[in-house]
Design a protein around this nucleic acid. Structure first.
Lengths: 228, 228
DNA sequence: CCTCCAGATTACAATTTCGTAATTCAGTTC
DNA sequence: GAACTGAATTACGAAATTGTAATCTGGAGG
C-alpha cells in the first residue's frame, strides 16, 4: 500500500530494514546516497521517508530540501548520533521523527504507522456555501435547494455562487457579468437574464421554495430567503 | 444608489428624513409599522435600515428578527429613549448604531455613510489553490500554469483541483473517480485517463513545465513540481 | 380596451463537453 | 525480433452548454 523511501548507505542495515518493511506490506524504494534518493523521487513520490543522516555525498538536510519541493511526506531520521543537539538539528531541518540506532524493528514499525496515520489523507474539504436549505458546491458543480441536489452548468453555478455569497444584497447585472466574463458589454443584461431564468428552472425554484431570486427596477438581482 | 428602509410612525419625522435622504441621493423606502416594514422587504432588500424603536405594532427587535432572515444590512436605531439600558438593548438586538432624538440631519448622514462604508461590498474572495506557477480557480473554471491561463471543462478542472490540493501525494484512479462521480465503476480508469490526457493538452503541459502529472504502476496519479 | 415596455421565458444553432471505443505507443518478456 | 501488456492518446458521436434573438407576459398609462 504505502510507499517508503529508504535512504541508507550501510548495505546490511538496508537489507534488514527492506525485508522487514516489505514483509509488513510496504513498497520500499532504496537509495544509498543523496543523489540516488533524489533520482528515486523522479519515479515515485513516497508516502514516508526513512533517512540516514550521514550519507557519502551529503546529509539528511541536503535531501530534505529537495524532498520538500515535491511532497510534504513525513521524514523519519535514522541515525547513530544520539546527542541532543543532533536530535534538535534533525527536527529543525524538517524531520518528523528521530530514531537512534540501534533500534527495535517493531518500534520502527510503530513510529512509521504513527506518522502515516497522522498524515492520512484527510479528505480535502471542498469550498462550499452552506445556507439553511441551500448549498452551492463549486467543486461538484452542483447546488442543493430544499433538499434536492442538481448539477448546474458553469454559468448558472457562477451566478448562484455570487448571489449566495452575498445573500440579501442587491448585485447589479454588470457586477455579475464582469465577475464572470472579466469585462462588460452592451447586451450583458440579456445573457444574465437568460441564465438566471435557466438557473431557476434547474433548481425548481417556485413560490414554495425557501429562496427566491428577485430583480429590482434598477437592474439588480438579490437572492433572498423567503420566511413568511 | 443605496436603498434605505426608513421605519418610523411619526409622519412629520418621516417626511423630513425622507426628503433629506432623497436629496442626498438615496432611494428611500418608508414604513410606519413593523408589518408594513416586513412587507416592504418583499419588494426590496435595503442596504441600510433606519429603525424607530417604538412602533404601533411592536418594537425594533421584532423587526430585526425578520430582517436578519433576509440580509445583514446595518440597522441604525432612531429613538427618543436615551437611557443607557435602552442603548445597550438596541445593540444587543443586533443594531449597528443608535441615535437619540433629536438629532442633527448631517450627523445622521455621517453615521449612515459610515455604516455603508464599513459594509461596502468586499469583493468576495473565490476559493482558489495557489501554488508557485500553478493556480486552480474553481469559480472561474480555469487554471494557470506557468503564466498562461486557460479555461478548463469541469471534469478536467475537478481532477486538477484534486491533484493540486494534495501536491506530491499519489491519488488512485478510484479515489479520483469516486470523488467526482460519487461511485466507482468498472471502466473508471479509462475515463480518468482520457480526461487527464485532455487536461495535459489544455494546460500545454510538457517537459518544460513546472509541474508534471505522473502515473504509478499501482494505478495512481501524482501532481509534482519539477525542480531539477 | 389598447399600447407600450421592461423583464422573463423560450427557441435556436454553433460550440463544447465527455464517456466509450479504437488506436498508438513504450516497455517487457520470451 | 515478435508478441504482449498496460498506459496514453486520438476518434467519434450523443448530449449538454450557452450566447443571441425571438416571443411571451404582466403591469402602467392613456
Amino acid at each position: 500500500m504505502s510507499h517508503i523511501l529508504l535512504v541508507e548507505d550501510d548495505s546490511d542495515i538496508m537489507r534488514i530494514n527492506r525485508s522487514f518493511l516489505e514483509n509488513e506490506g510496504y513498497t520500499v524504494h532504496c537509495a544509498d546516497s543523496v543523489q540516488t534518493a533524489a533520482f528515486k523521487l523522479e519515479e515515485c513520490i513516497p508516502d514516508l521517508v526513512l533517512l540516514d543522516v550521514m550519507l557519502p555525498d551529503g546529509d539528511g538536510m541536503d535531501f530534505c530540501r529537495i524532498l520538500r519541493q515535491k511532497t510534504q511526506a513525513p521524514v523519519i531520521f535514522l541515525t547513530a548520533r544520539d546527542e541532543n543537539d543532533d536530535v534538535i538539528m534533525g527536527f529543525r531541518s524538517g524531520g518528523d521523527d528521530y530514531i537512534t540506532k540501534p533500534y527495535d524493528l517493531n518500534v520502527l514499525k510503530a513510529r512509521i504507522e504513527a506518522q502515516l496515520r497522522r498524515n492520512a489523507k484527510q479528505a480535502p474539504q471542498h469550498p462550499k456555501i452552506e445556507l439553511p436549505c441551500l448549498t452551492v458546491d463549486l467543486f461538484a458543480g452542483s447546488a442543493t435547494l430544499d433538499g434536492n441536489e442538481c448539477p448546474l452548468p458553469q454559468r448558472e453555478l457562477q451566478i448562484l455562487y455570487m448571489l449566495a455569497s452575498q445573500l440579501g444584497t442587491r448585485i447589479s447585472y454588470s457586477d455579475i457579468y464582469r465577475n464572470i466574463y472579466g469585462c462588460d458589454t452592451d447586451d450583458s443584461k440579456n445573457t444574465i437574464r437568460v441564465n438566471i431564468s435557466r438557473l431557476k428552472k434547474h433548481l425548481n425554484m417556485d413560490d414554495m421554495s425557501t429562496y427566491e431570486i428577485a430583480s429590482t427596477s434598477g437592474g439588480e438581482y438579490v437572492l433572498r430567503r423567503v420566511v413568511f
